[in-house]
Design a protein around this nucleic acid. Structure first.
Lengths: 158, 158
DNA sequence: TATTGTTATACTCTATAACTATA
DNA sequence: TATAGTTATAGAGTATAACAATA
């Protein structure tokens, strides 16, 4: 049986933290993907502000542009937005006269979404800006690294 | 001068969209980073549910573990959380008796955050799970690709 | 019976202003 | 005067339930 010490255990040092050690979090793909994603999102919001477009608005317009007649349901499935939350998004874009709702050719429950001429002009400009800001946000990467990064990210989510 | 047609312009075809073309969005780094990030986040939330930890809770515990005595302000700066929003997070972890607040050695305005023994045990388990789920989420990548991806993501946000 | 689009609503996350105690 | 931590609160984003019209 060991001797029992009657002195209290030593008080912990309680030193102040000088610089925060984030090395463990940086070994996690989730942490790195999130940080990188947030960085690009910042660039995006700053550059798209002139068009008064959020990321979801830009995505919706771009998808309608390349898929004229797409339905709300298809947009929801593609972008991971729940149907009730798309209503206000579509409504606002329609109120700005950037998109139009036309009857769906074969399903009277649905409506086909189309860009107005103003919407086509806006999305054309916004897509140029999007390409530019991508270059900005990934300026520290070479063209080859950019392609590699794109490919590896797609391997995760596809 | 060309002849003027008096017939109305042809009605647009209004064909239904069969499969949604997402090829343009897939050329954007922001889109790919966000999709990949969301995929990993899903894995994370599912696996961390047993510990009742959200990503921010895990991050806070892991940072306190490696930086005992870290202040709320330092956590905010590291994780990009605003001070008012950290209060409830810290409060809940303290109520669960996973962390303890001890006086800061040199600044009486601040409090140093420390893990309780229960908190240390939980974070140790959670970090193992985190490493496992990372493997799951990036299962389609080789070890080399994983390292490359990590490096390229860090080049964007650092 | 299932699906599209919608309303209402609740919950979470994020952001801003203002206060106290201390530096 | 500036900073750490806090409260109250507002706004954005995300979630579920339920309904009418149509498939």
């Amino acid at each position: 049986m060991p001797a029992i010490s009657h002195t209290p255990p030593p008080t912990p040092p309680l030193a102040a933290v000088e610089t925060v050690d984030t090395s463990f979090l940086e070994t996690l793909m989730g942490y790195n993907a999130r940080r990188a994603s947030l960085t690009i999102v910042e660039h995006f919001m700053r550059r798209m502000a002139v068009y008064e477009l959020r990321i979801v608005d830009f995505s919706v317009l771009s998808l309608i542009s390349r898929n004229p007649g797409i339905t709300s349901r298809q947009l929801c499935g593609t972008l991971g937005v729940l149907p009730p939350n798309l209503v206000a998004i579509i409504g606002a874009l329609e109120k700005r006269e950037l998109i139009e709702r036309l009857p769906h050719p074969s399903d009277r429950r649905a409506t086909g979404l189309h860009l107005s001429p103003a919407g086509q002009a806006l999305v054309a400009q916004a897509e140029v800006t999007a390409a530019e800001l991508e270059e900005e946000a990934t300026a520290r990467l070479t063209a080859t690294e950019r392609k590699t990064l794109m490919r590896l990210l797609q391997k995760i989510y596809r």
